[in-house]
Design a binder for these strands. Sequence first.
DNA 1: CGAGGCATTGATCTCAGTCAACCAGCGTGG
DNA 2: CCACGCTGGTTGACTGAGATCAATGCCTCG
Lengths: 262, 262
Amino acid sequence: MTPSLTLDRHAHLGREAAASATRGASAAFVREKCATCSVAALCLPGGLSHDDLRPLQSLFLTTRRISEGEAVYGDGDPFRFIYAVRRGTCKTTLAGRDGREQVTGFHMAGEVMGLEGVAHGVHATSAVALEDTEVCLIPYQRLVAVTAATPGAKDLLTHLMSQEIVRDHSLMLMLGFNEAPNRLAAFLLNLSERYAARGYSPREFHLRMSRGEIASFIGVKVETISRTLSLFQRSGFIQARGRHVRITDLEGLKQQYELRIR
Amino acid sequence: MTPSLTLDRHAHLGREAAASATRGASAAFVREKCATCSVAALCLPGGLSHDDLRPLQSLFLTTRRISEGEAVYGDGDPFRFIYAVRRGTCKTTLAGRDGREQVTGFHMAGEVMGLEGVAHGVHATSAVALEDTEVCLIPYQRLVAVTAATPGAKDLLTHLMSQEIVRDHSLMLMLGFNEAPNRLAAFLLNLSERYAARGYSPREFHLRMSRGEIASFIGVKVETISRTLSLFQRSGFIQARGRHVRITDLEGLKQQYELRIR
DNA sequence: CGAGGCATTGATCTCAGTCAACCAGCGTGG
DNA sequence: CCACGCTGGTTGACTGAGATCAATGCCTCG
């Protein structure tokens, strides 16, 4: 398995219509149904048929706008919801005993956060918006009830969690082996795939996270990110100015770094 | 790769009561109930009352003996069961595209393996016995059915999975920061705790895994394991000869290395 | 007994961390 | 409007932890 570091994307779908939400900052809570959600195909595990979705209609979900830098939930918060990103980007972080923190993931539209809270009824990570973001609050207890009562959909939760486990494993694999350039290449290529899955260009995108956050995520220091980006640029693989990245030789980047495991 | 679930020789019943098992090499499969299982308290999530366990009685489980070096399940195998270790020790490994593999965990009595298989209906890791081991095969579909029908126990699965996620996260955190001595200390202290939780000495135990497997798990090379063990020994924290380890200064080891995050 | 796997130890090399200087953008406030 | 400071990013010089290469010891097993 190549280190893929993601919840895998399931389906393409055009860019978000998302006009559904009542707009304007004043209306922070909006009732929504999965069945009419534009990112449901990405959010829910692949196996679900349209019929399977029907019971979910009874789940009236609230959405919430989170502005850049604000927390969706915090380390230690009681666990009530799992959160699906509808629009925007979040990071999840894990705090070490001494205040240091590690970024455990970046989450884009259609990806789910907060599942680790099930274990102890309390969130073990924090989620923070990297840009203005809209998340879908899925009440956990209600979801359990609904899925339990519905044969076709009962695996939904476990699927989501299992995906999370698989994703974490591949991340561990990456942190275990590869050196800096491989890690960064894997990170960029992963982003590229996820943008592609959402109908955006796989070769040109805007990074939502800082160098420091990338560094934390892939387990190196900021300076190393800078140097390695410069290296990639000198080698003709990418062009980066600030947070704008253009991958000029996607195949080259793949071949040079992806499979390299020391 | 191959399931290679061998029925095998030796009974070698340790301290575990396990008298239930029809003994002798001929009977490799044995019907068991969680309710009478000696490691159930460790295996099942803490929140379950004795009543919650009752429905599980209807789950007739098979146990299987795995001899040292044999696989419990393999990367790519269809996902049918999750596996609880009843006796012995297993490692789970993740294979890189190029043949390299990383150890993702060591599992002792009462710990569960294989949950990552839910995601795609196929196991993403392999599990191999590090000594003669007995595992409990829990049929996933049946477990889902039973727990879905039982309000009190319905969170069982999700709890297990969420625990796995939390565990993976803390491992990631460790791999992300800390340098070699901290990692190794954390590893030893973790083992110590787990032995203690099972009624064994926290200060003296026999490693079930090779130096190479430890190295892979904590993300360094074998030589570094050797050197660091020697360092610990010179510093008076431990005495190690071969796989036998005695922690002579447990508190010291903790204070010197545990909280150190660079 | 020898062979082969595992472990230890030493010598050397190298990648990335550290320390430090510097630059670019940006919002604040004089 | 510019000066200022602040944050984020880049680049250079140096250092050090751990990888690599290699030799040797130790054990079990046939």
